[in-house]
């Protein structure tokens, strides 16, 4: 098993004339928390969308765990072991909390229409397994008491947690979190930090987009910085923090 889990090679994505991503190359090692930061519009979420197959990148490729990722095939990416959350929470609002997590088990289970109709022993056992695992995950992220509520009635912080639980249900090797702390208060962010630390301890590699600098610096082993679709730095947080190009990107270019 190689040490590198994900390798992005010269990935580029254009929207018309806008170069949302140019030549982004990075490697993520097994077991680390890798941060992806940058000002608004730098291309972080675009990178996520290319990685998870929602967008088709024009150039470059992703190598994940020995496989080349197919662009435009999100379900295959999920099957290989990449799960994600969304910047603007995307839950199945009119389904219950536990059902949301059960949907995440889809890629690891097999029951088809005939199993569903005839309820053979194998399907029943699988269904019980799905429910049991989903409940475990709800306990894990700490919202098991809301299992039978509709997802859209959860509080904002709980919705974020539910999204993480749904992503974990797919048994990912790499968990991509898109601004999980956005809109959270201090206590909620601290709880989230503990959750991420726990997930990492369980052996899941994490790719994190985040604006909360304190959270990123405290959590990440390495950080990459995007600016106008280009990667301008990649290193351990303490070094990146002092990089003049990074400071310029965040605080604006010198006026003179």
């Amino acid at each position: 098993m190689s040490e590198v889990l994900l390798e992005a090679k010269a990935v580029a994505k254009h929207f018309g004339g806008v170069k949302a991503l140019q030549d982004v190359s990075l490697t993520i090692r097994r077991g680390e928390v890798y941060g992806l930061i940058g000002p608004n519009g730098a291309g972080k979420t675009t990178f996520f969308n290319c990685l998870t197959g929602l967008y088709k990148n024009e150039f470059g490729e992703f190598l994940f765990d020995g496989h080349r990722l197919e662009a435009d095939a999100p379900h295959k990416v999920a099957t290989l072991g990449i799960a994600r959350t969304f910047q603007n929470i995307r839950l199945f609002g009119n389904m219950t909390t536990i059902e949301n997590v059960m949907v995440g088990r889809h890629v690891r289970t097999h029951a088809g229409v005939f199993g569903a109709i005839f309820r053979d022993r194998k399907t029943v056992a699988e269904e019980q397994g799905i429910r049991r695992r989903a409940l475990e995950l709800l306990h894990y992220v700490g919202i098991a008491d809301r299992a039978d509520d509709l997802a859209k009635n959860l509080s904002y912080g709980d919705q974020r947690r539910l999204e993480i639980a749904r992503a974990l249900a797919t048994e990912p090797k790499l968990l991509c979190l898109d601004e999980p702390a956005a809109g959270m208060n201090g206590t909620e962010t601290e709880g989230l930090r503990e959750l991420i630390v726990g997930i990492r301890k369980d052996g899941v590699t994490i790719l994190l987009i985040e604006h909360d600098v304190k959270l990123v610096m405290g959590l990440c082993d390495r950080v990459a910085v995007l600016d106008y679709g280009e990667m301008i730095a990649e290193d351990v947080p303490t070094v990146v923090q002092k990089n003049p190009r990074v400071i310029e990107a965040y605080l604006g270019g010198s006026v003179a």
Partner: peptide, 30 residues
């Protein structure tokens, strides 16, 4: 019976997930 059973099955949940949010359903591996 078919409807009730499909509704509470792996396939039925996948259908409902698509109804609720197709992008999220894709990302969840459907």
């Amino acid at each position: 019976i078919v409807n009730v059973r499909l509704h509470d099955s792996r396939i039925g949940r996948a259908w409902q997930a698509i109804r609720e949010d197709e992008v999220a359903a894709k990302a969840a591996g459907i």
